[in-house]
Design a protein around this nucleic acid. Structure first.
Lengths: 201, 201
DNA sequence: CCCGATACTGTCCTTTGGTCCAATAGCGGT
DNA sequence: ACCGCTATTGGACCAAAGGACAGTATCGGG
C-alpha cells in the first residue's frame, strides 16, 4: 500500500556548508515506496501532479535496478526509506543544491559497468575497482585494528576475535571501538558491510 | 571552452563513508590537473599525503574517460578548472555533505551505458548482484520474513525494522528468530553476509 | 626526558540481540 | 469444524555489544 510521505518540512532548509548561496528555492517531493511493483507508475503519477518539483524516492528495500530505472525517469534522489532524519536532511540539502542523490553501491556499479563498456571488458572482470575502494578504508587503521576489522567483516564475535588474536575480549572491544570511530561505522554489522563493499544506507 | 560548464548545475551524491550525525567536518582537497597525462599518479600521491580527505579534481580539459578513472580511484568530485567561484562553492557544499560531484553529460553516460550493460547481461551472470543470489536463499522464507531478512542485510536494527514495517520490535524479533532457524544463521551479521552472498567462514 | 601513537587491560553501566515460555487472530484447504 | 501456516504480541531471561570513565607499558622521535 503506497502512500506519500509529506512529513518533511525540511524542503526549504539552507545549504549545509552555511556559505551564502542563492536560495533558488526548489520544491522537494518525497515519494515513499512500500512495495516495489508499481514504482514507476507511482512516480509518473506523482510527477504529473507536482510538475517540475524534484522527486526523492525513499525505498523500503533499496534496489539498484529499480534505482536505475527511476533515475532515468527523472528522479533526483533515491535512498533507503529508513534513513535517519539527519540523513534525509543531507539528501534534501544536496538535491536542493541541484544535485542527485545516489547510493554508493549503485555508484560503483555505474562506474564499473561504464568502464567495462568503454574498455569492452566483461563486467565480471572488474572486481578491482570496487575492491580497491574497500581496501582503502582499512588503510587508515593500525595493524591490530585492521585485523579485528577483517575478523568482524568475516562474522566473528568479540570472544572469537579475542581467542584468535590471543588477547582479552576487553581489548578486542577497545580495538573495535577505535575502528568504529575511524570508519564512522555505527555497529559491527555496518562495519562488515563497509569492509565488504556494500555500504549500508 | 567552458561549454562543459554550461550544463552544469548537476551533481551526484552518495551516502558515502558514514553519514554524520555529528558536525562531520570533512576536509576538502582540491587537485588541479594541468596536463592529463599523469592524472592518476598525481592523485595517488596526493591521497597518500592527505589521507582520508575528500579530493576534488579541477581539470583544465575535462574528459569523461579520465573522470571515470579518477572516480574509481576515489575522487569525490570532478569539474572544470575554469568553473566560477559560485560553482566551486556548490561543489564544495555537495562534497562536504558526503557526496560526489559529477558532470551532467558524464552522469547521462553512466546511466545509459549501465542500463545497456544490464539489459544485455543475464541476471545470473552479474558479479555481486543483489537480487539474484539472495533471492534463492530468501525463497524459503515467508513474505514478512524476507522483508526483515533484507532489512537486516541492509544493516537495520530491530527497532528500525519495527518502525519500517510498522510492527512491534517484539514481532521483529520473532521474524528474525524464524529467519535464523530457516537459514541456519547464528546471528544477524552472519545472516547479512549470507544474504549479500559472502558466506561467513 | 617527555610526548604521541600503539597495544593492552580493568570496571561499571546501558542498550541490543536472541531465545524461551506462552497467547490471539486470520485465512485457506480438507 | 478442524488443522496448519502466517502474523502478531506479551513477558522473562540471559548473553553480547558498546560507551564511559579509567589505568599500565612499550617504542620511536624531537
Amino acid at each position: 500500500m503506497p502512500r506519500w510521505l509529506e512529513a518533511f518540512p525540511q524542503a526549504t532548509v539552507s545549504p549545509a556548508g552555511g556559505i551564502g548561496k542563492k536560495p533558488s528555492v526548489r520544491t522537494l517531493v518525497w515519494l515513499r515506496l512500500d512495495d516495489a511493483t508499481s514504482a514507476l507508475d507511482q512516480l509518473t503519477a506523482l510527477q504529473k501532479s507536482v510538475g517540475a518539483a524534484a522527486v526523492i524516492v525513499l525505498a523500503n528495500q533499496p534496489d539498484n535496478e529499480q534505482a536505475l530505472v527511476l533515475f532515468s525517469a527523472g528522479v533526483r534522489g533515491y535512498c533507503n526509506a529508513h534513513a535517519t532524519a539527519a540523513n534525509l536532511r543531507q539528501v534534501a540539502n544536496v538535491v536542493q543544491a541541484g544535485g542527485l542523490w545516489i547510493g554508493e553501491t549503485l555508484m560503483h556499479r555505474l562506474l564499473a559497468s561504464s568502464q567495462a563498456a568503454l574498455a569492452r571488458i566483461p563486467v565480471a572482470a572488474l572486481p578491482s575497482a570496487v575492491a580497491g575502494a574497500s581496501g582503502d578504508r582499512l588503510a587508515a587503521l593500525t595493524k591490530r585494528e585492521q585485523e579485528v576489522a577483517r575478523a568482524i567483516a568475516n562474522g566473528s564475535s568479540n570472544k572469537e576475535i579475542a581467542r584468535q588474536l590471543d588477547i582479552t575480549e576487553r581489548t578486542v572491544k577497545a580495538h573495535v571501538g577505535a575502528v568504529f570511530q575511524k570508519l564512522k561505522a555505527r555497529d559491527r554489522l555496518h562495519l562488515a558491510l563497509m569492509v565488504n563493499g556494500q555500504r549500508p544506507a
